[in-house]
Every structure is written in C-alpha cells, then in structure tokens.
Design a binder for these strands. Structure first.
Lengths: 166, 166
DNA sequence: TACGATAGTTGCAAGACGCAACGAAACACA
DNA sequence: TGTGTTTCGTTGCGTCTTGCAACTATCGTA
C-alpha cells in the first residue's frame, strides 16, 4: 500500500476520471441544445460529419461509425433524409444495400456545425503549448481506442466485479 | 485564407473535435453497458460519486452537479434509495429540504465503480509523459468550463444560425 | 431451384429527460 | 400576526433516443 501523494498514479487517475466524467456528461446535454436549432439531432450531426469525412457509406458501415445499432442508424438517416441533408441511393453492386450520400444542403449543414465546433475548440487550444497539444491529441485517441476495446469485450469486462481476486 | 498545413490551427482543432466527439460518444454508450450489471444507472453512478466526493447534498445541489433538472435528480435518488445506496434525510434547518446521504452500501458500490474506472484510467495514463498528462488534465477541465459557459448562455449561442435560412 | 447469409426497415418496449402543476414549508412585509 | 411570495422536492405526462427481434428483399452457393 503506497501513500497517496500528489503524484500517486491512482490519485491522478481519479482526477482524470472526474474531469472526463464531467466533460462527457456536459457534452451529452449541451450538444442536445446546441444542435436543436440546426434542426438535426446529435446522432444526426455525427452522421453528417462522418459522411463528410468518409464519403458515401452503407447503412451498416455508418452504424458502426456511430457505434449504434443499424436500426438506430436507419432512423437517423430517415430524419436526415426528411430534412434533405442526405440521400438513400441504391447500391448498383448490391440490391440489398444502400449508399447514404450527403446532399449539398447536408454538406452545407455539416460545414456549419463543424465550423462552430472548430472555432470553439481553436479558442480553447490557444492557451496550450504546441507539444502538449500534440500529446493531448494522442491521448484522446488512445483513450477512445482503449474504451472501444473494452466496449467490444463487454461480456467479460462488464461484470468483473472483483479485479483483485480474479 | 492560408493553406491548411499540418500545423494549421483549424486543422488541429478539427482533429481535436473529432477525437473528442468519438470519445464522448463511445463513453456515452459504453458506460451504459458497464453500469448495468452493478444495478445502477449512469446518472445513478454519477450521483453516487458526487455524494462520495462532496458529502450529503440537497436535491437541488445534486441536480446542479449532475447538470439535470431537479425532477430527474429526484427520480435518480428514488432509484438509488430503493436499492439502499442512499438515504433521504430531512434537513434539520429547513423543513422543505432534504439531505441525500450515502449509505454504507452506497459508499461500497461507489468505491467499486470508481476503482474500476480509476484502474482503467491508470493503465491508459502510464504511456504518457508527465508533462503531457498535466497539460491534459488542465485541458479537460478547461474544456468543461468553457462548455459549461456556453451551455449556460444557450439562448444567445444556440440560435446564432442564419435567421433568413428557413 | 432451394437454402442460408446479409442489408435494411419497422414494431415494440425501456430508459432518461424536461416541463409544468402541485403541496408544504420558509420568508417578507404590512 | 396574517397574507402573499418564494423555494424545495415530488409526480404526471409527453418526448426523444435507443436496442432487440421479427420481417422482407436480395445475394451467393450448391
């Protein structure tokens, strides 16, 4: 049992955990408000962004990118299509599949949303050292990767109630 | 219009934005799974953590910490109380108010949840430079603060779309 | 042609949330 | 001291998001 000093790994990890929890919780709620006036849901906004980055995708691929069930993805696409932001195009190579494409309006909307977020992020980043910024970006991505791994192995990691006696 | 080099602020901000979006989205979904087997909801887990950190709180204070409506907080507390993790104690100084207290079982559960998260976070942090870690912690907190400010000023920032676009 | 696998859609239920209405207690003020 | 106002917490109700499972249509293969 090591003493909990300021530099104790567990203490530091606890700080990170709290910071991350607050951030996630806040974004969960804030984004809902922010996005509403743009007439798209949070998932919709993410879908637009993904489509803008990766080009047309099948529904399954989109669902995977969004980390949601394909049924949810289907509904999200339905909403976006109603508003004219995406198009469902039948896949010429596979009669079962569709390709979800961004329309011009969708691309425009996506640019607006991204601009907004980027602008805000830029302001935030200004106060940090370039080297630290690079490290942070890697950290965020690493965190996502690790979390994704754990999420994938839910059955095992979900109910490991006792890490020590295992 | 400067060219978008690797060090262009907007590009970097975009990278951050994407990284953060993925992280938040993933955690949003992963936490739901993770918490299920512990018999508490995500909000419930956060509430436990907050109570453990800050001690007994009024319902309003708890709601503020959770960033939710007091009605939601009331229900969350109701769930936790059913399971024996918290207690509603009448405030001796104010007949209207209550104090939400952690029970022993609640403290135990909270420790389990936190341990889990801390353990994971610790593993993640191990690979990063101490200086970068310090920067990151500050960054995360700054991000939360800024986001909170924007969330508070929703009326102004939410609908700064083009009014004539409808 | 028949069968199993795959893509996408939809019915259904559950969970989290906010708003608004409500009762009870505290407070302010005449 | 009595009355009106504010604050605290609870509850009814509707909405939104999501996943699971059942379903249809299509593809690939024997």
């Amino acid at each position: 049992m090591e003493p909990r000093t300021q530099h104790d790994p567990a203490t530091e990890a606890g700080d990170f955990h709290r910071a991350l929890r607050d951030l996630i919780r806040l974004h969960q709620l804030r984004d809902r408000d922010r996005v509403c006036c743009y007439d798209v849901t949070v998932s919709g906004a993410h879908a637009l962004e993904i489509l803008a980055t990766q080009g047309p995708l099948s529904l399954n691929a989109l669902a995977a990118e969004l980390f949601v069930d394909k049924s949810t993805a289907s509904r999200v696409v339905g909403c976006l299509e109603e508003r004219g932001y995406v198009r469902r195009v039948p896949d010429p190579l596979d009669g079962r599949a569709i390709r979800v494409e961004l329309t011009d309006a969708g691309a425009d909307m996506e640019a607006q949303l991204r601009d907004d977020a980027v602008w805000e992020m830029q302001a935030m980043l200004a106060g940090f050292d370039p080297e630290v910024r690079r490290g942070m970006l890697g950290f965020l991505r690493q965190l996502t990767r690790t979390s994704a791994t754990h999420a994938g192995a839910t059955d095992a990691s979900c109910c490991r109630t006792d890490p020590g006696a295992d």
